[in-house]
Design a protein around this nucleic acid. Structure first.
Lengths: 242, 242
DNA sequence: CGTGCACCTTGATTTTGGTCAAGACGGTTG
DNA sequence: CAACCGTCTTGACCAAAATCAAGGTGCACG
């Protein structure tokens, strides 16, 4: 609400109408005047798990900031084998500028809320604002780093290490503060076992067995299939094959 | 040599002193004045296979355009397991701007020739030239696409499909024109079996066996361990698990 | 020219994770 | 409440790839 006051005191909105926070996603890289323009076209959206956000082949007609929830990026082979090639968390920017032919499908893994704006608006701003392009480069470099880290997990880790790595990844993205400390941490898994399997290049049975093993070994406990508690993060790290 | 004439006719070098071609790597995105400045600091280098170009943890002190050869980006787990997370071909740009903690090791896979310039030069130009930043964004997006494509290969393909996919990837990067047609194509493998294994998340024995199978099935022929001939690319594609 | 070495291939055996099958749990719906 | 469905777990068995082991090829070098 202090942000709202900025609007009245300065005449310039310090926040995007839909995002409701200046620092979110792409908005933090905009000039005040651009933010005004963006606000006029942006809309807040809430989508349910499974909703397709960006189709595989279709042309992208809007970009979004993720305000909450988890988005999975998937690729599928012609015979149906699927691989999750990226997970995006708030406040990531969603949408692929300068699209090439190769692209992934973006789907809500959990309930997701988005601040969404038309492609044309953001592309015009991109041409005007090097700051915005820099912001997008920064996120792209981050995604590239994450993709490459995950390639090591996919190519060289055992099933047990993969599952431990996955739990750490989620913990660090859901609750970075707590995951940095050595204390216990609990969080909800944003993915089903099937999604986890598609992220790790495993089957659901193997994922389930490895989670059971971590449970019986006392490294984690799980309630209602989704709620995970990790008493000692370093024990999990020790099993993640760093 | 026509490029060389530009220098004399216009007084402005149309090419980087070391790259010897304006379109190569990052040079194509520079203003003439920047190109002059870059030319003064750039140097041409030739490195042998195995040479380390960018160390894992160390700070990067120079950036390069790859003029010829293949560079592998590797990541290694603490127990020595290794994964190649990217291959770079001419005329790619080599070097990681705005470095975060996570990084890969860059090593010459073949003999490589580079046009190399100091980090400070390129970073100053980055601040001045949105065009340059755009060029880097473009390459980063391309690398991200490639990384995600490869994640599908690592996570969901069989050993046979992985090896076929690898051969296609090399063919397309070594000789894009011929790989686009349906004619036969021959090329030298830029990687040892050990490197191929590290790229595919397999062991060298498995790579060797799959290559043998492709050979005995008449899909490819191999001479001197490195020289590959593919008579019919679509037969290889059919085995790559598109 | 023989020795050593890096690189590659092939075979035998083991292991990891996949496949197939059955059942448990929880929530929704008629 | 019973039936059903999606999701997850567990067990028995199987297949793909790893591991272990041996040997081949070509090249650099004394």
């Amino acid at each position: 609400m202090t942000d709202r006051q900025d609007i009245h005191s300065s005449g310039i909105p310090a926040l995007c109408a839909a995002c409701e926070a200046r620092h979110r996603g792409v908005c933090g890289a905009l000039e005040p005047a651009q933010l005004v323009a963006l606000s006029k076209t942006s809309s807040k959206q809430r989508v349910q798990p499974g909703a397709e956000l960006v189709g595989d082949e279709e042309t992208v007609d809007h970009y979004s900031n993720i305000l909450s929830g988890v988005v999975k990026l998937t690729k599928t082979l012609s015979d149906g084998r699927q691989q999750i090639v990226g997970l995006q968390f708030a406040p990531d920017f969603l949408g692929r500028p300068f699209r090439s032919e190769s692209a992934a499908n973006a789907e809500a893994a959990t309930e997701v809320s988005l601040c969404s704006f038309p492609r044309a608006t953001i592309e015009r701003m991109l041409r005007e604002s090097p700051q915005l392009e820099h912001r997008i480069l920064t996120q792209t470099l981050k995604e590239l780093d994450e993709a490459r880290d995950w390639m090591v997990t996919l190519g060289r880790k055992t099933a047990a290490e993969k599952v431990a790595s996955f739990l750490l990844l989620i913990a660090r993205n859901i609750d970075p503060a707590r995951a940095a400390g050595a204390e216990g941490i609990s969080f909800d898994l944003p993915l089903t076992r099937a999604d986890i399997a598609d992220f790790l290049g495993l089957t659901i049975e193997t994922v389930s067995r490895q989670l059971t093993r971590l449970r019986t070994d006392g490294v984690i406990s799980i309630e209602h299939n989704r709620q995970v508690f990790v008493g000692n993060l370093s024990r999990l790290e020790a099993r993640s094959g760093i």
